[in-house]
Design a protein around this nucleic acid. Structure first.
Length: 376
DNA sequence: GAGACGTGGGG
DNA sequence: TCCCCAAGTCT
């Protein structure tokens, strides 16, 4: 059913596979880093760690994992929590659909799986946010099932060891690599095998400047043999990202509370709070864009009184400059459309709400400014 | 299948 | 400053 792609990789034989497996696991046993999710056998925590580690470095995920696991120690506690609390705990980690899906999946686990993370591939894959990688990782690590977990590290390691010349982003190539991994897998220690490949990819077989001299797979690596390891994996060039100007309003009420708005759940940064405003259109001034966007979304006229702060930020597929204007309500009061929400937040509430990076930076800027003012 | 989806670190 | 990229999934 999988179409075979012609490949340049070296043919495997039993001795080669055995060397790969044994060298790798011996290296892993001697070099594995201590991580909090490696000191538990709780499937919930292993699942949590795998979700946090999606497209995220170990160093970045680790403090979040500790806080999250302490705050929501069981799947029942997670299911019982509000999405707002879950997002607040996730703030700053990015890819917030992971948090929304994790929360949704926890509720489904409690409702339909009796509070236990499923140990069957089909069932676990049915949970939102669990794809082929996460299913294989959790099933191998938590339940000892011999499924290869193919993440970016595994793809790079295998593409180099076998000098896979086809575009590694293509499905056919992925299938080829997955079959290779399945062949190599140590069925006695599938969880250790999967983690070993990833750990090797993260610390030795790195994207740039791989440390081949320290690599246990050097004796079986075709790319190291040819001296062209950095040519693999083969991926198409990426496009450069566009830039947008965003104008937002800083509006305080008489009680010194700040006007903040909640983003719709399906949107980018869905469920997070932000300052009212929007993207500038061609030919528009920043102040006009600010007034127009606030008027359109919140049915209220504001007047701007000068720029308070500019923040540059890069997302995955575009960049923005956020221009934050001090502003006040010109007439009336904000009104939320049916599917949206806003609030006037005091200092304590601003600490509790989940903001994106730019929003949090602006909140911190304003509270620092306020502290200086009141300190004088 | 291609593009959306965050953030921070490193070269 | 810029570009790359990191334990992917969803649409």
């Amino acid at each position: 059913m999988t179409k075979r792609v012609p490949s340049t990789h070296v043919p495997t034989n039993a001795a080669r596979r055995r060397a790969f497996r044994e060298n790798l696991l011996a290296w892993y046993d001697a070099n594995r880093r201590n991580m909090p999710w490696r000191n538990t056998s709780d499937p919930y925590r292993i699942w949590l760690s795998e979700v946090m580690l999606q497209q995220t470095r170990v160093d970045q995920a680790e403090p979040y994992y500790r806080r999250f696991a302490a705050r929501f120690p069981t799947v029942e506690r997670l299911a019982a929590a509000s999405l707002d609390d879950v997002l607040a705990c996730w703030e700053g980690l990015g890819y917030y659909s992971r948090a929304r899906n994790l929360h949704k999946a926890a509720r489904r686990i409690v409702e339909t799986f009796g509070g236990r993370l499923p140990d069957e591939e089909e069932a676990i894959r049915s949970l939102p946010g669990v794809g082929p990688y996460t299913a294989a990782a959790v099933l191998s690590i938590a339940y000892g099932k011999a499924l290869p977990a193919l993440d970016g590290n595994a793809i790079r390691v295998l593409a180099r060891v076998f000098r896979v010349a086809e575009d590694a982003t293509r499905a056919g190539t992925r299938n080829q690599l997955r079959d290779l991994a399945a062949d190599l897998m140590d069925s006695a220690r599938p969880g250790a095998f999967n983690q070993a490949v990833m750990e090797l990819g993260a610390n030795v077989c790195k994207p740039a400047a791989p440390r081949c001299e320290a690599c246990p797979l050097r004796p079986v690596c075709a790319a190291a043999e040819a001296g062209d390891q950095t040519a693999f994996p083969v991926t198409p060039p990426r496009k450069k990202t566009p830039h947008f100007d965003v104008a937002v309003a800083i509006v305080f009420d008489d009680a010194g509370r700040l006007l903040v708005c909640k983003r719709p759940e399906e949107a980018m940064l869905g469920g997070l709070w932000e300052f009212p405003g929007g993207k500038r259109k061609p030919g528009e001034t920043l102040e006009a864009a600010c007034r127009r966007a606030v008027r359109k979304k919140w049915n209220v006229d504001v007047e701007t009184r000068g720029l308070a702060r500019r923040i540059d930020h890069a997302y995955t597929h575009f960049r923005i400059t956020m221009h934050a204007f001090r502003a006040s309500i010109a007439a009336g009061a904000p009104r939320a459309p049916a599917d949206r929400a806003f609030m006037w937040a005091d200092r304590a509430e601003l600490q509790t709400l989940a903001f994106s990076r730019t929003g949090r930076l602006l909140v911190e800027f304003l509270s620092l400014e306020q502290a200086q003012k009141s300190g004088e």
